[in-house]
């Protein structure tokens, strides 16, 4: 084993222990985004140390804890991933992911490796359907592309003012009986990707963006004004 490999193993161990801080976390995570061996090393340490997770005394939760969780999860939503340069750093902060807490020093995360691993190395696929969402004034407002793997990319075409405490929620309607289904939230008008599971993406399916509370519509259906909407078409390639 080379000194570099040994050093990486130790670094990965320190990362999982939560011992890397500040700039060390940033540089480690930049490498983690690209280097599969490091991702495997993280998974290795996580699995080994996880034996310790079960060694605490279980403590019964307060009676209202579940109700508070239910309130917070509000509308069903998927994770939005901003895809601008540096999104790795912002991923965890987007939509208040680590609300009220700094990222530094506490970023040890297998999840990051997973998210990064899923996005890295993906060939450029063709969308199954594309919808151009139009504003009230019939201006092009955003493009929605749905891919065969269930991912959906939303690209806003104009600035959208999002007041404090609000977010943009993306919806699709594929079945009138079922009603609109939330794809996820965006905290400002920027490119975002959502991962969906077994959600249809067909021609003439409606997509729309509404203004909702920052944690999403509390009732699972649009409550705020429709900012833009449009029907999907299959690209003629």
């Amino acid at each position: 084993m080379s000194g570099g490999e040994r050093n990486d193993r130790v670094l990965a161990g320190e990362y999982v222990l939560g011992l890397l801080e500040g700039a060390d976390v940033d540089s480690f995570e930049r490498r983690l985004a690209r280097e599969k061996p490091l991702q495997d090393e993280i998974a290795y340490w996580r699995a080994r140390f996880s034996d310790l997770d079960a060694t605490a005394d279980a403590q019964a939760p307060s009676a209202d804890l579940w109700r508070r969780i239910e309130t917070s999860i509000g509308a069903p939503r998927a994770a939005a991933v901003a895809e601008r340069p540096g999104w790795v750093e912002r991923l965890w902060e987007s939509l208040g992911f680590w609300r009220g807490a700094s990222f530094a020093g506490a970023a040890a995360s297998l999840m990051l490796a997973i998210a990064v691993g899923l996005l890295a190395g993906r060939a450029t696929p063709q969308p199954v359907i594309i919808a151009v969402l139009q504003t009230d004034g019939a201006l092009p407002g955003a493009i929605v592309e749905a891919f065969g793997d269930g991912s959906i990319v939303v690209v806003p075409l104009r600035d959208i003012e999002v007041p404090p405490g609000k977010a943009l929620e993306v919806w699709t309607l594929y079945d009138k009986q079922r009603g609109p289904v939330s794809l996820g939230l965006i905290d400002r008008a920027e490119r975002a990707r959502f991962q969906t599971h077994n959600l249809p993406a067909r021609e003439d399916q409606l997509y729309e963006i509404t203004l909702e509370p920052a944690t999403g519509s509390p009732i699972g259906r649009p409550t705020g004004p429709v900012l833009m909407k449009g029907l999907a078409s299959a690209p003629r390639i």
């Binding site: 699995a47 996880s50 994770a79 995360s109 999840m111 997973i114 998210a115 691993g117």
Partner: peptide
Amino acid sequence: WRHAGSFDPALGRGRAWMFTILRNR
């Protein structure tokens, strides 16, 4: 709830994933 879609069983067990989030938080 929000990030369940990013869980990858190939990279570890469900419990380890949940407790990773817990320790980070």
